[in-house]
Design a protein around this nucleic acid. Sequence first.
DNA 1: TCGCGCCGGCGCG
DNA 2: TCGCGCCGGCGCG
Lengths: 289, 289
Amino acid sequence: MNHELWFTPRKNKIQINGTIIYKDLSEKIIEKLNDNLSVSEIIRWIREKSQYHFREEYGYDPQVGSLNNSAGRWNELIATTILSKIILNVNQQLENSFYVVTFQLPKSRLKNKNNHQLSSQILNLFHPSSFNKGQLLEQISQFKDQIFMPSPDYIIAVIPQKFIPSIQPLLQHQAENPDNLEIYQFLESKLKPNNIKAIISLKTSNRSDRRYQPLFEAAMLKAISYTLHQNWKYYMVSSELSSADNTIFETAIAPHGLVLGKNLKLVDGTYNFTQKEDLLKFVKEAIND
Amino acid sequence: MNHELWFTPRKNKIQINGTIIYKDLSEKIIEKLNDNLSVSEIIRWIREKSQYHFREEYGYDPQVGSLNNSAGRWNELIATTILSKIILNVNQQLENSFYVVTFQLPKSRLKNKNNHQLSSQILNLFHPSSFNKGQLLEQISQFKDQIFMPSPDYIIAVIPQKFIPSIQPLLQHQAENPDNLEIYQFLESKLKPNNIKAIISLKTSNRSDRRYQPLFEAAMLKAISYTLHQNWKYYMVSSELSSADNTIFETAIAPHGLVLGKNLKLVDGTYNFTQKEDLLKFVKEAIND
DNA sequence: TCGCGCCGGCGCG
DNA sequence: TCGCGCCGGCGCG
C-alpha cells in the first residue's frame, strides 16, 4: 500500500484523496462489514487511519473539513455497495416481470434554460419531451425551470425487465465499483414517474440545522409526486439520530399538505444505518407498495 | 480588557466565549461600522483577534468550529443593532398609527403536545386560543403539532401604536443590547398573522447544501402564509452570495405553488449584507406593501 | 445533559 | 475556476 498516493500537495495545503484511500482499503472494509462491525466504526477507522498517515507524513493534523468531506463519501460508497448487493439479491427472488434498481445521480447544477437538461438532476431521468402537452410531466412543465433541489443520494426504481435486461450485471459492477454513475447514465431520459418508488437521504450524522436540508428535498419531491399523482416515498437514513431528529422526521407535515388541509407526511421512514440489515428494511418497504 | 474572560477551560477543551468577546469589542465594532467597514471585514477582525489571544494563551489554534459558532453570533449581534437603529429611525418618521418592530426569537424546541407552547417558536407569537374554531389560525390548527422549522433569524412586524406604546425604548435597548429577547417576550401570544410582514434569514456565507436550510423555512412559512391568506415576505441576507445562490433564491418556486399550479416564489428578495445601508433596503420593501 | 442553529473546511468534476 | 454536497466543530440555554 502506497500511502503517498493518499495525499496530494496543493498550493498551501495537502489534499486527502478520499476515493483512493477507500479503494486501497476496500477489501478490509468489506471484511469488516461481513464481521458485522457498525458503519460508524468502520468510517471512524478509515478516518483515523487517514489521519495517522497524514500526521506521519506531514507532522500535523489534517483539517477537520477534509476528513468530513471524505467521511461523507466513504459512507456513500459503503451504502452503494450494500444497497446494490441487497437489490441484486431481491431481483433474483422476484417472480414478476420487473427489476428493482438503485442508483446515485450526478450533482445538480444550474443549467441554462435553453439547454435540454434541467437544473434538478432528478428531473433529467425523464425525457425532455415528457414535459410536453398531454405527456406524463405536463402538470409540472410550466415550472420546470423553477424547481431547485440537491441531487438525492439514492433513487430506488422498479422497471420492466424487458427495458433493462442487463441490469443485474450493472448492479454487480456497481457493487464492486461504488463510485460510478453507469446506471444513472443508462436510465437518463428513459424513466417514467411511476418507475420511481423511493428517494433516500443518507448521512453519517445530523445537526438540527442540517436536518432541514433533506426535508427541503422531500418537500419538493413530495410536491412533484403529488402533482403527478404518484406515491414516491422519502426515507431518511443516518448513522446517528437524536430523539428530536426522529420525532421531527416522523411527524413533519409537507408544506403542500398544510395548504391542501391534508395530513401529508414529508418522510415515510427513518432508519438508523449501522449494519447491512438496516438497509434491507426500507428496500422491502419501498417496493412493496 | 481582560482576555482571560474570553476563554474558559472545560473538560478537554478551551471554550471561546463569543458573547463576552463581542461585548468587550462592541465599541470598536460600532466605530468600524460607522467608518463603513464591511461586515465581513469586521467579523474577520474579531475572528483574528480571538484567534490571536487564544494562541497567545494556550499555544495552539482554536477549533474552526468554535470560531464558526461565534462568527454566526457576531453577525447576528451586528445585524440586530443595525436593524434596530434603522427601525427606530423609520418609526420616528412614520405618519400613521403603527410602529414597525424587529426582533429575534428563542430557539425552536420540541414541545410536548400537552404544553400550550408549540415546537415552531414562531407560532408562539400567536395566542393559543387563536387556533380555536372561528379564530384567525383555525385553518392550520389541525396540523399545528406537525409543523417544524428552525426559529427564523428575524421577524419584521407592523403593530398598532396603541398596542405597543413603549416600543421605541425597547428598540433602543435592543440596539444597545443585541443579545436579548425582550421584544419577543413582550409580543409572545399577542400577535395576529397580519402583524407579520417579513421573515429574514441571515448568514455570513452559504454553501450549496446549507442554502436549502432557509429555503425549507421559507417553504413552511409561505405555506402557512398562503393558508392564512397573508402575504409574509421572506428575505435572504448574506455577506457572501454566489451567482448560483442568487439565481436559485430569485427563481425557486414554493412546493405548494407546484401543487396549486401557481408561480409562488419562496424568496422575495436576496440581499448582500456588507454595510448598514443594505438592511435599509428590505426594511422599506417589507413595510411598503 | 442535550438540543439548537451557527459555519467554514474540504475533494472532486 | 468554481459549484456541489459532504459534515463535525462548537457556545449557549
